[in-house]
Write a protein that binds this DNA or RNA. Structure first.
Length: 648
RNA sequence: GCUGAUGUAGCUCAGUCGGUAGAGCACUUCCUUGGUAAGGAAGAGGUCAUCGGUUCAAGUCCGAUCAUCAGCUCCA
């Protein structure tokens, strides 16, 4: 007998050789039905694996991320089997489970098209109905190479065995009917668990992510153990589409993109410009309190400036080509649309001699930069070719560095919390020591910089994870990452330490010893890019902006034409109070006016009729909440003003 | 940049077998004057993304280009 510890702490004994399924059955019929795999002492294994020693176990079902992972991984194998049956000659690359489903990279003489997906889905469900047992087999690596070379004739699996797995002696194969895949597992015990599947799209990928290798066709999908779960998934996708900032941006007239101006060059419409303006004012106000000095710099700069900073050689392929100016005497000058603001700020710093007493100096600018992102990368506001950074550079003494990083983190956190972003991930982006050539500066400098970043992050008590190889070429960063409505991750704010630029630009200050010293630079941008931030904000709020940001804060809705004069006076009073207010004097019923205002996501609807007019009152209706009651005009204005200035 | 898909009125979308375009919403005008999510009628609105080809005839078939979307790759 062996002692099995269950997740709730109870210990039960089972005959040696019992499987996960046996244990699940002993606990309950439902659990046995839902069981997908087993976790033994923290390691996921097949449900059918016999247990021969005492262990702590957990039955994995579709409710847990690990259970989903097993389910989707098996679904990708089932898809491969379906593809193999339908399109003989297909060879299989990598087919993992991902955050939301799975994919398989396939090399096939057949070019997959949309209707094929429906056919493959059908076949997958049919394979599910066949109730094929999935079995694991372990064999020496050599035998597996032999197997995949001759029986399966799959060169991709052979390559994985010969390359990625060359240190491994024994590998595992999973068989289901005639289909066999090289896989570490675990997997479902039978194909019959698959009850619902949706293949979502076809795209291409490079074999092993290497653009010099062959293209493969990648089929993405998601699968569920019940129809009901698939329906729920489809509903979530619909909701995400409704929140898409590109769709809402057009509907709410916030911004536009047109090839007549250029791909990836957003234009702010009046309503979007209000939001951006409010956000900029908010940050400017906050920065004024924190000792920042506003500056302005031009949109283009001499190419020599960026060669000196190191940006040009590192990123020349993602910049717009230089503008070349030929002089009469034959000499030429080249200018770049500025890809970065920092070089300009460094020149401002070195425009005069700085004393140690002057530091820290915090230069700040909403600086528009231009980067020629690959066409396939462009995505509304969140990935644009022209965008504005809320860019500041803090020049400080080494002894001030950690404090200044903390100040920058504090500001960033304040911005995020004011805007209601609660689930922000923080990444300490460190350099990859194995790839030193990618970075400027010496290893000693990097060590110091990363130590300082960590110290600041710890002092601020932020919950971070470390991203090796995510640093910029001049220093480590603290990156603030949020997810959009489609669950894609976007980096917004950033705080970066830089010991490299001060060298390149020969920045200095005079210390108390009368000698020249090197300052350290912090690059920081709480919003990151105004475009991206607002794009994510649109999706985050679904276009229901807080009152202080709403492009139209209130709309006056007179009930009938004989109230128009009073309605107009209310409108005027609100405009005079600085509240962005419109008035709806169409000859529509109030129900219609309210509906249009609700659809337009206007936070406050001011309904006025005979009753309000008699007492100099207004009725307030809040967006998505409903009737808020009757107030005196001035009382309501005061209340709204308080809400606006409080940015709540 | 690569692979695939898409592009018809301001928006959402029909448009069969190739025979010169249609709905709903929005807009304008008129009627209606109302109490918390859609009152009624009429009107206007189109180089069917662009360019080229096939055809007696192209929104429809073919090719190229541009843009957008999904993914890959890249990312300061």
């Amino acid at each position: 007998m062996i002692a099995i510890t269950l997740p709730d702490g109870t210990i039960r004994s089972f005959p040696s050789g019992s499987t996960g399924l046996d244990i699940a059955l002993s606990i309950g019929r439902k659990l046995a039905q839902d069981a997908l795999a087993l976790k033994v002492d923290g390691k996921a294994v097949d449900l059918g694996m016999p247990l021969t020693a005492d262990a702590a176990i957990e039955i994995l079902t579709f409710d847990s991320p690990e259970g989903k992972n097993v389910f989707w991984h098996s679904a990708s194998h089932i898809m491969a089997q379906a593809v193999e049956e339908l399109f003989p000659g297909s060879r299989f690359g990598a087919g993992p489970a991902i955050d939301q489903g799975f994919y398989y990279d396939i090399a096939s003489p057949h070019r997959f098209r949309e209707p094929d997906l429906r056919q493959i889905e059908e076949r997958m469900l049919e394979i599910g109905r066949r109730d094929i047992t999935i079995t694991r087999e372990e064999m020496p690596r050599d035998a597996a190479i032999e197997f995949f070379s001759t029986v399966r004739q799959d060169p991709y699996k052979v390559e994985i065995l010969e390359d990625t797995l060359k240190q491994v002696d024994t590998v595992s194969l999973y068989h289901q009917d005639k289909f066999t895949d090289l896989c570490i597992g675990p997997h479902l015990t039978s194909t019959s668990k698959l009850k619902a599947v949706l293949l979502t799209n076809i795209s291409s990928s490079f074999w092993r992510g290497d653009s010099s290798r062959e293209n493969m066709q990648r089929i993405y999908g998601i699968a569920f153990p019940s129809e009901k779960l698939l329906k729920e998934y489809a509903a979530r996708i619909e909701e995400a589409k409704r929140r898409d900032h590109r769709k809402l941006g057009a509907e709410l007239e916030l911004f536009m993109l047109t090839p007549e101006v250029g791909s990836g060059l957003p234009i702010w419409l009046p309503k979007g410009a209000i939001i951006r303006n409010e956000l900029e004012s908010f940050l400017k106000e906050e920065q004024r309190k924190r000792g920042y000095l506003p500056v302005y710099t031009p949109h283009i700069g001499n190419i020599e400036l960026y060669k000196r900073s190191g940006h040009y050689p590192y990123y020349s392929d993602s910049q717009f080509p230089p503008l070349t100016y030929h002089d009469e005497d034959g000499s030429q000058e080249q200018y770049l649309l500025k890809p970065m603001n920092c070089p300009h700020h460094h020149l401002i710093y070195s425009n005069r001699i700085r004393s140690y007493r002057d530091l820290p100096i915090r230069l700040t600018e909403f600086g528009t930069v231009y980067r020629h992102e690959q066409s396939g990368e462009l995505n509304g506001l969140v990935r644009a070719r022209g965008f504005t950074q809320d860019d500041s550079h803090i020049y400080c003494r080494p002894d001030q560095l950690v404090d200044e990083i903390c100040n920058a983190i504090d500001l960033t956190q304040y911005v995020f919390s004011t805007l209601g972003f609660s689930s922000v991930q923080t990444r300490l982006s460190m350099h990859d020591p194995a790839n030193q050539a990618k970075y400027g500066g010496t290893p000693e400098v990097w060590e110091q910089a990363e130590k300082d970043v960590k110290e600041a992050a710890d002092r601020m008590g932020i919950d971070y994870f470390i991203g090796i190889g995510e640093a910029s070429f001049y220093g480590p960063k603290i990156d603030f990452i949020v997810r959009d409505a489609l669950d894609r991750k976007w980096q917004l704010g950033t705080v970066q330490v830089d010991y490299v630029m001060p060298e390149r630009f020969d920045l200095s200050y005079v210390g108390s010893d009368g000698q020249k010293h090197r300052p350290v630079v912090i690059h920081r941008a709480p919003f990151g890019s105004m475009e991206r931030f607002i794009g994510v904000l649109i999706e985050h709020t679904a276009g229901n902006f807080p009152l202080w940001l709403a492009p139209v804060q209130a709309i006056v809705l007179p009930i009938a034409e004989d109230i128009h004069d009073y309605a107009k006076s209310v409108h005027q009073a609100m405009l005079a109070a600085g509240i962005r207010t419109e008035i709806d004097i169409r000859s529509e019923k109030v129900g219609k006016k309210i509906r249009d205002a609700e659809v337009g996501k206007i936070p406050c609807m001011i309904v006025v009729g005979q009753k309000e007019q008699e007492n100099g009152e207004v009725s307030l209706r809040r967006h998505r909440i409903g009737d808020a009651g009757r107030f005196s005009l001035n009382g309501m204005i005061e209340q709204l003003q308080k809400e606006i200035t409080g940015r709540t």
